[in-house]
Amino acid sequence: MTNEMKDTGIVYDVKGLDLWYGQDQALKNINMQIYKNQVTAVIGPSGCGKSTFVKTLNRMVENIPIVKIGGEILYHGENIFDKSVMVEELRTKVGMVFQKPNPFPKSIYENVLYGPKIHGIRDKKVHMEILETSLKAAALWDEVKDRLDDNAYGLSGGQQQRLCIARALAVQPEVILMDEPTSALDPIATQKIEDLINQLKEDYSIIIVTHSMQQAGRISDKTAFFLMGELIEYDDTSKIFSNPAKKQTEDYITGRFG
């Protein structure tokens, strides 16, 4: 991450990635390139490794002690598994939003500023700037600007999830990983998050795991289809949904299994 960003348009270059949970191999020889300022959807049936894959991109998966990883993931040309890479630094560039909204049991203000504060920003003026920009970018500002000191758990589920997005944006990442961010939300809240994702891709590269093929179709530029730990097909979303190259992809998309 010390290298200056080479603007090749490729954010992640995954090379021969293998991952085991103990004896079970969850990812098998994954090779794919993820592009800048695009929404990349990762789809596949439960247990296919799509969540595991996304959690590998910011090395969160290593919090599970029995995980073993082989292969490389190049982030702007640098292998994220290299000994010189500090996961803490990687994660300031690669933010993450989880399946279940997980704000901290603190005020809205404290939630958004958690990242900036732990990374050493103390200036109150800068705090207010970050607070407003992040909440506006997450389309939450108008709803919460009068109650920034209220506890985050007083917000609705959809608002909590947008707060978590604002919290991730506050450390100015380049990539945002989203692990089924709307699966716990109602259709209206889901719609808001999807609109938000469309706006955010102007400035960020987004990788989103989703169970809903309609969602992948609506919001993504590229789609990766995983099955039993393998990357079956990876292409433009329009191509995957209209004319998939592999039979398994077609079967999944047309609802023959999964």
Partner: peptide
């Protein structure tokens, strides 16, 4: 999930424990 939220922001273990 609270710990994960903190780690995902680039917080170290100690920061996560303390805050």
């Amino acid at each position: 999930f609270l710990r994960e939220g903190s780690y995902a922001m680039g917080a170290s273990k100690w920061t996560t424990i303390w805050r």
